[in-house]
Design a protein around this nucleic acid. Structure first.
Length: 576
RNA sequence: CGGGGCGUGGCGCAGUCUGGAAGCGCACCUGCUUUGGGAGCAGGAUGUCGGAGGUUCAAAUCCUCUCGCCCCGACCA
């Protein structure tokens, strides 16, 4: 491609709206432009990068045996009402009415459409397993779009859906996708982790998120330094320790006593006043799960993980009770709730189990209780893993040291089970002629987000450092003196010869100063730069420099094609 | 939806408090010089000051309403 005939509008200054590095660089390098909040145009170079990711995905999906289809973005409300998600998905669904006043929406995901297709077409175990995927724009009316291409309202996504006759088959399909995703992200040149995750509004029995490790990520992940376990913080299990197991001998317990704690509503204030440490206090949180009021007990220095509680209760909605409800339920204002004397269901974190003579609220204004003990003073309905994992905890699998980090979710694989096939009646006949629901899985990849994540992970002060597999161009040629015939000829020859060998090359044939071309080349992040200038050309030499390396090397004009090819191959090898 | 901030030439901003000729840098156009890390000089073009209404002799500036964008939070593959 000749720069003079192409369109890469770079910016010297950063637009004020861009906060994170990938957003800034994508705007500055002329890859994207915004149309409205969370709605972006891909400019030519941005689109090339997007297409390269798309092609890697397509190749690996096809290799795994998955089959490409294309479903409509416009979907009728009936299907969503059938699955129950017309209401459940909520405000995030872009809805509209057509001219006949029929309710419709723009697809944020395609479980309903694919399940509808499959229930019409698949009737026998002989037709499975099958995995159908598409690469298509998705629409989600995000509460708050942000970070440029990272969280948008319209975005390109690869979504795949697997269909199996039984659980074992579904597990195999999941496993194949898991491996395929590893191949895809490795080929994109990313450093990533597969983390255990919550299934959220997609539902299903288990899932993994593919997280690109980056400080600007929106998710927290916990990973083990010893084994390959990793999990999203909202899912991360807490390893139970031995002292949580033991029961406490009643004879050793101190007598329950009331203590005045005027206006002390926080853990800090109460513990400071009573000269105890936070792990000797138990917080009592009042929550509303669907319509039921429940109490959750958490040690003072721990934090409730609402998702764990939500899953344990099997609740669709869970929220902290408002002050009025807390007063009704406990008889005291917020800050003085305690389990003693409560009538509602009480759920306690495992850490409570081994505690003895702890402090709780007294269910009365300005009152706390000392020497509280489970069983003697109140009954716990269920113990469970309810708290957020924190530094100092150990790996739930191997007990190793765990590390906290941030990540960008670029892919998500779910084992759906029969959630959709049952509600939507996607059934088949097995070997014995018995009717069964199809066992499903679904697998998404954010294509644009993958490009943004790659930039988050690969950049420096001068611009992007694209992995060669997803760079808009593999090589950029900079002829520095556009008024010198020799320079132009050399550039044109290399350009022609390398293009014929199939390389993706940008020839910067603009009549600009050298500095300008260098700056633009660094910004766009093309992995390999060939500089041709009078300075070295008079010795028959040109300059070759990898964007990711500090040093450039002089090579002879004659050897250039072979050496460039060799270097390009080497850069590609690093993603294999 | 709650909190905070911002809308002035293509981009980045000053001017708004305290009303009185719309400015600066970059980009753009012309000419000359320059030419290996975002050139210099000279000249030039470019504005519904987000929009509507109001106050005033006079509004980018004050008042009311409204639209859009960004950040934090709640929410969310």
């Amino acid at each position: 491609m000749r720069y003079s005939n192409y369109f890469i509008p770079t910016l010297k200054e950063t637009p004020a709206e861009a906060e994170i590095v990938s957003h800034r660089l994508m705007l500055r390098a002329g890859l994207i432009r915004k149309l409205a909040s969370g709605i972006y145009t891909y400019l030519p170079a941005g689109l090339k990068s997007l297409k390269k990711v798309e092609n890697i995905i397509r190749e690996e999906m096809n290799r795994s045996g998955a089959i490409e289809i294309l479903m409509p973005a416009v979907q009728p409300s009936e299907l969503w009402e059938e699955s129950g998600r017309w209401d459940y998905y909520g405000r995030e669904l872009f809805r509209f009415k057509d001219r006949h006043n029929r309710d419709s929406c723009l697809g944020p995901t395609h479980e309903e459409v694919i399940t509808d297709l499959v229930r019409r077409e698949i009737h026998s175990y002989k037709q499975m397993p099958v995995n159908l995927y598409q690469i298509q724009n998705k629409f989600r009316d995000e509460i708050r779009p942000r970070f440029g291409i990272m969280r948008c309202r319209e975005f390109l996504m690869k979504d795949a859906y697997s269909f199996d006759a039984d659980e074992a088959g579904a597990d195999r399909s999941y496993e194949i996708m898991f491996k395929t995703y590893n191949n895809i992200f490795r080929r994109c040149g990313l450093k990533f982790k597969a983390a255990e995750a919550d299934t959220g509004s997609i539902g299903g029995s288990f899932s993994h998120e593919f997280m690109v490790l980056a400080d600007t990520g929106e998710d927290y992940i916990v990973s083990c330094l010893n084994c390959d376990h990793a999990a999203n913080l909202e899912k991360a299990e807490v390893r139970r320790t031995d002292d949580e197991a033991g029961s406490v001998n009643e004879k050793e317990m101190g007598p329950l006593e009331e203590v005045e704690t005027p206006d002390m509503k926080s853990v800090e204030k109460v513990t400071a006043f009573l000269s105890i440490s936070p792990d000797q206090l138990v917080k009592t949180l009042i929550l509303k799960a669907n319509e039921e009021v429940v109490a959750a007990l958490i040690r003072g220095d721990h934090e409730l993980n609402e998702i764990k509680l939500k899953n344990m209760l099997g609740a669709e909605q869970l929220e902290l009770a408002d002050p009025q409800l807390v007063a009704e339920a406990t008889g005291a204002p917020i800050g003085f709730a305690g389990p003693h004397g409560l009538t509602m269901k009480i759920i306690a974190d495992y850490a409570i189990k081994g505690m003895k003579d702890f402090v709780t609220g007294g269910n009365k204004k300005d009152l706390h209780l000392r020497n509280v003990n489970t069983e003697r003073d109140f009954h716990v309905d269920t113990f469970g893993d309810l708290r957020v994992a924190m530094p100092g905890d150990s790996c739930p699998r191997c007990g190793g040291e765990i590390r906290f980090g941030k990540g960008i979710e670029v892919g998500h694989v779910f084992k759906l089970g029969t959630k959709y096939s049952e509600t939507m009646g996607a059934v088949f006949l097995d070997k014995h002629g018995k009717e069964k629901p199809i066992v499903m899985g679904c697998y998404g990849i954010g294509v644009g987000r993958t490009v943004a994540a790659a930039i988050e992970q690969n950049h420096d002060k001068d611009g992007i450092i694209f992995p060669i597999t997803i760079a808009p161009f593999e090589v950029v040629i900079l002829p520095l003196q556009m008024n010198e015939k020799e320079v132009i000829d050399a550039a044109e020859n290399i350009y022609r010869e390398m293009s014929e060998k199939g390389l993706d090359i940008l020839l910067d044939d603009r009549d600009l100063r050298a500095g300008f071309k260098f700056k633009d080349a660094d910004l766009l992040g093309t992995p390999l730069r060939i500089t041709i200038g009078t300075r070295h050309l008079k010795n028959g030499q040109i300059e070759m420099k990898a964007r990711s390396e500090e040093e450039s090397t002089l090579i002879s004009l004659q050897d250039a094609p072979a050496l460039i090819m060799e270097k390009v191959d080497k850069l590609h090898d690093s993603t294999k």
